[in-house]
Design a protein around this nucleic acid. Structure first.
Lengths: 255, 255
DNA sequence: CACACCGATTGATTCAGGTCAACTTCAAGG
DNA sequence: CCTTGAAGTTGACCTGAATCAATCGGTGTG
């Protein structure tokens, strides 16, 4: 029986799965990971098999929490009282996740998409950490600024992009390319299901599937398998996401 | 000519306006404001007449910024390269606003909805402040956690609520009631235009107007004037926003 | 007071994405 | 190899919000 300050849930079916067969590429900014040794002394470790999750709520109401993903991939989602859910982000090995003080009527869950090792620090563990390592305050500030930037970008997707643009922008985020680095062509492995992408982008799985197909037919991407996407034309994706100066020139007219 | 680290824009028309005739009620959590004396020693003050704005971008790329609203109301919005814009929040006297490091292709603007006094602290001013007042680190951490919670709630609105729910949830936020305090009936003043509400909620002004009308016909609110809303039935608003346990029982069927 | 202007409201129509259902693909296990 | 089941894809249709357009209403001005 786990202690009352967290709640762990195991996958409903013990299905073995294919996630492990390719190592997901991390989207972590380099620089987060080097604080991990310190977190390690103060945080509580947790191993989650694929599909397992832990919820933040109940006793955590009003507390914030820091989660460091040592290995694996997780999705984080919020569930509303009426059952609606929204995935607010995916985090890969090396990423840090700051969970804001939770709200009444909302329940926040972190679920593993592959076997995952992580560390959790709640408010009191964090304050012990910052008491003995005041130099970390600046890093924590930077992390929360990054988290804020990340979620702001996502809010923009949800607030003023159509389905096509959301998906283009999602693929670019998964490539870690939103700020322009990297080559035009790249192959990437998506550890999450279409359903997850849909819940992340505020769409339905059918819509995600349709737009993947459109992008494939337009020659912007290839989809050798459903979880393996080859980005053939990054510039076109940028334009479709409305992030390029020449946006609009690249619309998939009539496709 | 203003220094290059900010850019100020004045209202296009010098229209006198009615905003001043009722003092907007602040949504600030008490507790933010008592740090203002400290901010005052390190921040740069700025007065904005109604409709004036300043932009964060250019030289600020990669910097975060703290803005303390001493008096007035502002809206903060992000503009994408293609001209789309999303208002990410409104801030009232006593509120603090943390602006995340900006992104390429995005431009962030703070615009006054009424004559406004504010303080701005950029990265270097913030680090001077935290160097001489290390006790503030905890407050800054709390502020960023609050900001994260706020924007997460908004992301939820945009990601998985329909127009009706977004508007119900918006009205509740303006009442400062999202966590359940206050009486069932309340009168509130909205300093922003329908267009602003629409850009905040990812809708069009016509849609906002229609749903205000629906809520009025259903007896949930009254709208004596377009900027003055009387909430007659908070519980019904909560249900419509999907935040009550009995959600759904209150749907405006056939209205 | 009459006028002009701008925002808000309402109505008619269109369209992107949701819904529902059929079919395909693929991995696991006998 | 066949069976099974779950995820993904595709098609037909529907609906909620956007769009386009007309009207209303308050505010400031001559």
């Amino acid at each position: 029986m786990p202690p009352s300050d967290y709640c762990d849930r195991w996958p409903t079916s013990g299905r073995p799965n294919g996630y492990q067969r390719a190592k997901p590429v991390s989207c972590a900014k380099p620089g987060a990971a080097h604080d991990f040794p310190l977190f390690n002394d103060y945080g509580r470790p947790l191993n989650l098999p694929t599909g397992a999750s832990f919820g933040v709520g109940g006793d955590h109401l009003g507390q914030s929490m820091l989660v460091a993903v040592l290995d694996g991939v997780v999705k984080g989602y919020i569930e509303m009282a009426n059952g609606q859910r929204l995935i607010f982000g995916f985090r890969f090995a090396g990423d840090v996740l700051l969970i804001p003080p939770s709200e009444q009527h909302l329940f926040l869950v972190i679920e593993a998409l592959a076997p995952t090792k992580l560390l959790r620090l709640n408010d009191s563990e964090l304050s012990r950490l910052r008491a003995s390592h005041p130099e970390l305050d600046l890093r924590l500030w930077e992390m929360s600024a990054m988290e804020l930037a990340r979620i702001t970008r996502h809010m923009l997707r949800l607030g003023c992009m159509d389905a096509q643009a959301r998906i283009a922008s999602f693929l670019l985020e998964m490539r870690g390319l939103l700020n322009g680095a990297g080559s035009n062509r790249a192959s990437l492995w998506l550890p999450m299901a279409r359903q997850d992408i849909a819940e992340y982008l505020g769409l339905k799985p059918e819509t995600v599937s349709r737009h993947f197909s459109r992008l494939r037919e337009a020659g912007v991407i290839d989809t050798p398998t459903s979880k393996h996407v080859v980005v053939k034309d990054r510039d076109r994706l940028l334009a479709l996401a409305g992030l390029s100066d020449g946006a609009g020139d690249f619309a998939l007219n009539g496709v």
